[in-house]
């Protein structure tokens, strides 16, 4: 070719090379996460409504907690008397998981599936971004939303209870509820996030993943719980996401298990397996797309 520019020469035509700071490559996942949360909040009522409902739920339950402080109530499934605050937190499992399922369906199932569909991977991976940063960023972004009912709500309720303590003695007896609520919330957030994202990534189709996740939660989970109760085969309950999370909560809050459910450690293990499967689905799809053709056709 004629008159080629020498290697890497920058011509003097008013062009000024950027010489400022650049962030560490390992921190780029925050940008992906921020993007997910930002898009989620402005785009879908399926995200806004559950979050608002979570806030209302926390306010209502905090009011109940304030009014009935010090009471003890029998725990369903075992009949043991437990402090009202623990009963409130664990008793909200069904409602909070329903809200989390809606969030997971709206956001988790679609976040990677939509990127695959529209070819957004091209924008990510033509930059100095690694596949792991993308995966972690997506997980954090979805977790920040799904964690509102599953982590933020129980943590706030635990904080309210700790805040209601009159003296140091009561605080000493009560404070453990806070780390337990956080641990329980984290286990639920991780599972619901990873399962919904992993399903969307593995199927590479938002609608199929959303249908699958909802059917699993609403139909298969409900049937599993009924089967476990009617046939007295507690292991059937391992197929129910919400039941596993509630049962794991009993272990974390040091309560006896529900008679109709499997051992709490089994439920906790089931959550771990599901979370691992979700993460495997995500990584499989991201690495697969990276190796073949990262979205957008040939």
């Amino acid at each position: 070719m004629t008159q080629k520019a020498p290697f890497a020469q920058i011509h003097e035509q008013g062009y000024e090379r950027y010489t400022g700071a650049r962030s560490e490559q390992g921190s780029r996942f925050w940008i992906v996460a921020k993007n997910v949360a930002s898009i989620a909040w402005r785009s879908r009522w399926a995200v806004k409504i559950p979050i608002v409902l979570t806030a209302l739920t926390v306010m209502a339950l905090a009011g109940v907690m304030f009014l009935s402080k010090g009471a003890q109530v029998p725990q369903p499934g075992s009949g043991q008397l437990v402090p009202i605050e623990v009963a409130i937190i664990l008793g909200s499992t069904g409602w909070l998981t329903l809200l989390a399922t809606i969030l997971g369906t709206a956001l988790g199932c679609s976040t990677v599936a939509d990127d695959l569909k529209v070819g957004a991977f091209q924008f990510y991976f033509s930059r100095s971004l690694r596949a792991n940063d993308y995966a972690i960023g997506k997980l954090l972004g979805v977790a920040a939303v799904v964690g509102v009912p599953l982590l933020v709500a129980p943590t706030l309720l635990a904080l309210v209870r700790v805040g209601l303590c009159k003296d140091a003695t009561e605080l000493g007896e009560t404070w453990a509820i806070l780390p337990r609520a956080v641990a329980w919330g984290l286990s639920g957030t991780l599972t619901f996030t990873l399962v919904s994202i992993g399903l969307g990534a593995a199927l590479a189709n938002r609608r199929a993943a959303q249908a699958g996740f909802l059917v699993w939660y609403l139909v298969i989970g409900s049937i599993a719980k009924v089967v476990a109760q009617v046939t007295k085969t507690p292991e059937a309950g391992l197929f129910a996401l919400d039941a596993n999370w509630g049962n794991a909560g009993r272990l974390i809050f040091d309560l006896p298990k529900d008679n109709h459910m499997p051992a709490s450690w089994q439920s906790l293990a089931a959550l771990g397996v599901l979370a691992a499967a979700g993460y495997a689905g995500l990584l499989w799809r991201v690495r697969g797309a990276e190796v073949s053709s990262v979205g957008g056709g040939s």
Binding site: V118, G119, A120, F123, S126, R130, G295, G296
Partner: peptide, 21 residues
């Protein structure tokens, strides 16, 4: 080589942009 891609700008043929942004 993610680091090496810093020197590259790519405008893909397909859309792939986020409509909500």
């Amino acid at each position: 080589d993610a680091e090496a891609r810093r020197r590259l700008g790519y405008c893909p043929e397909h859309e792939g942009v986020y409509d909500e942004l």
